[in-house]
Design a protein around this nucleic acid. Sequence first.
RNA 1: GCGCCUGUAGCUCAGGGGAUAGAGCAGCGGACUUCUAAUCCGCGGGCCGGGGGUUCAAAUCCUCCCAGGCGCACCA
Length: 569
Amino acid sequence: MQKLKEEIGEILAPLVEMDAEQVLDLLEIPPEPDYGDLAFPCFTLARTMKKPPPVIAHNLAQQLADRKGWLWDKAEPRGPYLNFYIAPKAYSQEVLKKVWAEKAEFGHTNLGHGANVPIDYSSPNIAKPFGVGHIRSTVIGHSLYLIYRALGYNSIGINHLGDWGTQFGKLIVAFKHWGDQSELKDNPVDYLYRLYVQFHQQAEEDPALDDEARLWFKKLESGDEEAVSYWEHFRKLSLETYASIYGRLGIEFEYYHGESHYNQMLERVIELVQEQGIARESEGALIIDLEPYNLPPVMLRKKDGATLYITRDLAAAIYRKETFDFARSLYVVGAEQTLHFQQLFKVLELLGFEWASRCAHVPFGMIRFKEGRMSTRAGKIILLEEVLERAVEMAREIIEEKNPDLKDKESAAEAVGLGAVRFGDLSNDRVKNIEFDWEKVLDFSGETAAYIQYAHARICSIIRKTESETPAWDDQAALLLEMDEEITLVKTLARLPEKIIDSAESYKPSILARYLIDVAREFNRFYHNCPVLNSAPEIKHGRLLLIDATRQVLANGLGLLGIIAPEEM
RNA sequence: GCGCCUGUAGCUCAGGGGAUAGAGCAGCGGACUUCUAAUCCGCGGGCCGGGGGUUCAAAUCCUCCCAGGCGCACCA
């Protein structure tokens, strides 16, 4: 907790001839609880003081021997470290009071001061089914959206739909050759997807189809009426299908600005690039050479005059800057596009935009089968809807078995099932690939969302059994906590604010997810060793305050992951 | 060929300069007349991919190698 650090910083700074701030930077959390709660390493002092670190630690401890602070009790040397031990009671009171006072705001800060942070996430390709692969950008992006909000930034969710490009040429060709209106109407995305797969199969044998597709995309770009009407039709039907998935997952966007949204700006981008003299013609195409920067060239316009993905991304980046004047602009897009973003940001820099450095690609690994990667084209894919459905069904079965009397089983099953899927994607470092495994998806034991939700539900259950819905604050009751399990839990709760900041700065919701597992684990230990309702009245009150704070931390944290914390399950 | 990412317990992964490298799963053994056993407690399990280097200190930083993944001009 910050207050404790500051207290120690002030005490220590004059003794080691450093600024309080420098001391704060050095303080670290020891690996073992036995080693205290905050450690000051003496290695860096060894040089200036010309003494071995353990001697320095020992001397400092002697100077502090008879002193203690409000939040710390004692300082002891251990090897090269000077370890500070918190004053458990005062510290508990301080932490619990803060959570009590801030409630749903605990962990939130106002680092952002309302600055805009557009976040590009989800961004599915229209007319392709929403596979499990797409859930990563969606849930990681949405969680970052919520986390930045909690830090006082004005997050702006942008769904950069893949609603433009050669694939529409392909779909138009496929539909003209083999399409059927009534099948399209019945199950649009699924049908378009089948056509898309069919196109790629046929194109293997008949490459002329690819040329035909390119031609149709070119027609689309030049506003050909027939092409545009196909495109509008496909787009509209796809969006309707996505809306139901987003609704179910509680995902929201400020803007559905797909690639097509930037069509009118493309000419301007090309002019801009030419004015800056960084582009040149090559084999009939317009390219920017990035060789001096060790990057492959960027193509802005094909020899047939059609634009590419990066042309639209340049327009989008400039549009976002002009519209939102962002503090940061985030792109939650798969790691396979790292090179694309390196090129994009480099071109922005070459155009003289100093804000290029405020754009960041937030990459993540792919979801793969044991046998290899998923492929939309080849039809090797698992639909997100199927995953969600099976996860919720599994949750339903477990609830039926464990808690048959539960009133609202359906909403609990929904929360647990969807939470499991989300958590699976959020809890590991995003840069790593994930191997898709039904057994793992459907396992709700151990380090899972259900583990956290279960702890939350247990707390709610205890509180429900007391007279009042939420325990009243009591300074004295909060001072009575002293069991190891209680103090460890308090210390863990105190870390929520820093974990939220760490998650935001590293763009890693997994940091928060892991932390919530720790909170739930410490709560479970407490739960098994410290009765709440059946303890002496003063102790009972203190413990109620403790579990209520735990409930709040779990709820706040899960909320930032986009996971619902049911009161019963 | 070049570039980026990853390699930690049987499996899935935390830890990303600092004290004795940690969880979950799987396995074995315990704990429900007591606040929800989706839980808890205990046991076994490791050349942190390999070599070299920087440092008082390396799983962590640098370098080379190996293995896997992903990219590298007319897809997104």
